[in-house]
Design a binder for these strands. Structure first.
Lengths: 253, 253
DNA sequence: CGACACATTGACCAGACTCAAAGCTAGTGG
DNA sequence: CCACTAGCTTTGAGTCTGGTCAATGTGTCG
């Protein structure tokens, strides 16, 4: 299965080099990481709150989310992770997981022992820096999510979520012009925005009627990108260089 | 002003050693950091969204918060920072600030050039690890805030905020038994919880009537710590070792 | 053809917001 | 020492965004 290794190296290198400079040694360090591949079926937890993680997980394909459940059983999604992401980077340093990780659809993942990851990061300055930087960008997204959930009304809030998703996907070349595939159900959107599923349904209808965004059959289509950003008060600064600003908006994957 | 240096070293060492192991060299690295001290007056911004930071700021005394303002002018507080904290750790790696930093009261800060900080972190593994870990703990607090703001009703949400504050202050020895000083206005609490000030006022009255928590003249008193945690669904796991679990609940500062 | 999960609708409810007016309190200047 | 101010807290009234409950569509998969 050398295809897996190649994919892993290419995704990691691509993702990390948009946020830090990697030299040949760094790239080699990435390519020689010991790794185990696994396919996680749709809607299966990858790890749970309280688990002790010993491996880091790199998403190769599919969407993944972090979430927490509070006492009443309500779920809050904390972040979405797309191919190339390392959703449990923090697990490298913080032994016990304070949240769970879920595959939103069938997902291909690479698992790298923490020991090896830490070793590689210590040896290869570029890799270490890139990982640290990536972790800090994650934190920046969390901050924006706090603002989104704390201060934006439902319509704006939902629009903002999709602005982020579209921008990140586009940077990864996973969009088809204005449209992209998404495994999110309205329930997922509700849990990511802190709204109720019923209300999300109504907000999505509003966005559709306004021709800003429409989702059907697991495919989202941005109807008016400018207006969607305006409504959402979307400022991609918080993505730092996650979204290479200059990525072309078009061009099939 | 050697007292400043001593305070800085002691706060930093204390804070970082609760979350990572520091050897003599690490401590020396901390003690020899080049540093500039400054007093920030009450309600003054320390830096603003969009600024390029070249120094890291360590809080010596006073409370500080990070916040963002959205287009309508609404403010969301993202985190609170207490003595010993480095509220802009992320600035070390992410050049442009995606949020602002405000002194909630008169605050004494130490400023350390990023260059020096990075150098020290590179040389002293312990320090580097501790800083990275601290940054990841910050991210963990952000995640919990997303949950708080996204999924908890106002009463529980407000209770949770104060559970976090009390736990962190206690770990720093800044509580007097069940009570502690706080510079937070009800407006600040509103902006930290995503509520309106009027509603916060009513919730605080409820907490007071229930004898869980009462705030008067910038002093908060926990009336029933067990119950407050229960109501808030507070699980200090997410603070990782920020709150040395075994810190005594009592003993004057 | 069910079964199941998700999307949609309608009716109703409530938690939280807005607006507006008073109280407080601490600091300021006369 | 006291009015005056500014900022914060408190209260009341009315509204509305978003939640709940429950039923009905719709689509996919075995």
């Amino acid at each position: 299965m050398d295809a897996n290794r190649t994919l892993l190296a290419s995704l990691l290198t691509h993702q990390l080099s948009t946020i830090a400079t990697l030299d040949a040694a760094d790239r080699r360090a990435i390519e020689t990481l010991p790794v185990r591949f696994r396919t996680i079926p749709e809607r299966r937890d990858i790890f749970r709150e309280g688990d002790k993680a010993v491996e880091a997980c790199v998403v190769l394909s599919g969407w993944v989310c972090r979430y927490k459940i509070i006492s009443g059983g309500r779920r809050q999604i904390l972040s979405l992770h797309l191919p190339g992401d390392i959703p449990d980077l923090q697990g490298l340093t913080l032994e016990v997981m304070d949240h769970s990780l879920l595959a939103l659809e069938e997902t291909r993942c690479a698992f790298i022992p923490h020991e090896a990851m830490r070793g590689a990061a210590d040896l290869s300055t570029g890799l270490g820096r890139a990982l640290a930087r990536r972790a800090l960008i994650d934190a920046s997204l969390f901050r924006e999510w706090i603002v989104n959930v704390g201060r934006r009304p439902a319509y704006e809030r939902t629009a903002h979520l999709f602005c982020e998703i579209y921008t990140r996907l586009r940077a990864l070349g996973l969009t088809n012009g204005p449209s992209f595939p998404t495994p999110l159900t309205q329930i997922d959107v509700a849990d990511a925005t802190g709204l109720s599923p019923v209300h999300v349904n109504r907000i999505l209808q509003q966005l559709r009627r306004g021709r800003l965004l429409s989702i059907k059959a697991k495919t989202a289509v941005i109807g008016d990108w400018e207006e969607l950003q305006r409504v959402a008060d979307f400022n991609p600064l918080y993505l730092h260089h996650l979204a290479s600003d200059l990525a072309p908006a078009h061009g099939a994957a």
